[in-house]
Structures are given as C-alpha cells and as structure tokens.
C-alpha cells in the first residue's frame, strides 16, 4: 500500500488524512463564528472567494475544551458537495502509507474509534487514519 497521507497532529496524537481527499492545506486567519451551530463547527472562513465550514477536529473527535495548540492550519476537503476546512493542531508533510489500515485489539479509545478507519504504518511510525466523512458528521451524528 503506498497511499499518500497528509500527516498531522490532532489532540496531541499523530493522525493522517488520505491525501487524495485533501484539496489543499491552508493557514486560517479569520473565522466567522456561526452562533447556534454545533460546537465542533468553529465557523466559516473564506478561501479564494469560497466559504469553507471550519471543523475543529479535536472537538469533532469528542475531545471537548482541551488545550489546543496555536496551530491554525487546516486541510480543505469536500464532503457531499460542501467544502470543509479541518482544523488540526499541526499539519506536517505528505507521507506514504506502508500498510493497509488495520484494527488494533482493544480499539483506539473513545472518540478515535468513531472516526478512525484504522492504524497505518508510516515512516514516522504507527498513525491513525482519520475518516473524513465521519469527522465532518460530528460527534452527535456519530453517536446517534
């Protein structure tokens, strides 16, 4: 398996998003909040005259209110015709997957289990492969 992965840091853990899904990685400077929207939706941001829904990956995974790094980098993905910016703590480089995603006995822990497609081996060690669609759906929808 040599799928390309975008390596990033979410909630202090190493994670990866399938690079095929990522349109670009952007630096977010301004977020327009949306009052009344679920917590994990931080608001909207504009990218090249296009509005993106900004998703805080940490909250979307169920790790509410923890200390977040100062990182303002986000991966832009499309789900169901809508564009989202997945805000991560840190976005590193694109790396190659060295294995298929596999389950680990005992699971990955609450939150991760919901949104992870499994663990993949990479050059930087084992990494969780994040399921973009599940992440975008948010914690509520997944729990339901």
């Amino acid at each position: 398996m040599n799928d390309l992965l975008l390596m990033c840091l979410i909630a202090g853990r190493r994670a990866a998003i399938s690079a095929a899904r990522v349109q670009s990685v952007i630096e977010i400077d301004q977020i327009t909040p949306i009052p009344g929207a679920p917590d994990f939706i931080l608001g909207l941001t504009a990218m090249r005259s296009q509005a993106l829904t900004v998703i805080d990956c940490q909250i979307a995974l169920g790790f509410g209110g923890q200390d977040r790094g100062s990182g303002r980098r986000a991966a832009v993905v499309q789900v169901g015709g809508h564009s989202y910016a997945l805000l991560v703590e840190e976005a590193y480089d694109v790396g190659e997957a060295r294995s298929d995603p596999i389950e680990v006995p005992g699971g990955f822990g609450p939150g991760w289990q919901m949104a992870a497609r499994g663990m993949v081996e990479t050059d930087c060690g084992p990494t969780l492969l994040i399921d973009v669609d599940a992440l975008v759906a948010g914690p509520v929808a997944r729990a339901a």
Binding site: A46, S49, T53
Partner: peptide, 25 residues
Amino acid sequence: PIAPAIMETGLYAGTTLLDDGRPMM
C-alpha cells in the same frame, strides 16, 4: 448552500461572501 450540520440549526438558509471576502450567514 451551507453544510448540513449548520442547516440543522434552523437558523440559516445559506452563506454568502461580503465584498471584503468575509463570509456572512
């Protein structure tokens, strides 16, 4: 159109960009 999760709030019908590039609901 806006993302389904925002649509569910029942508060917004869509989004648009202001002239200065900022999004507006």
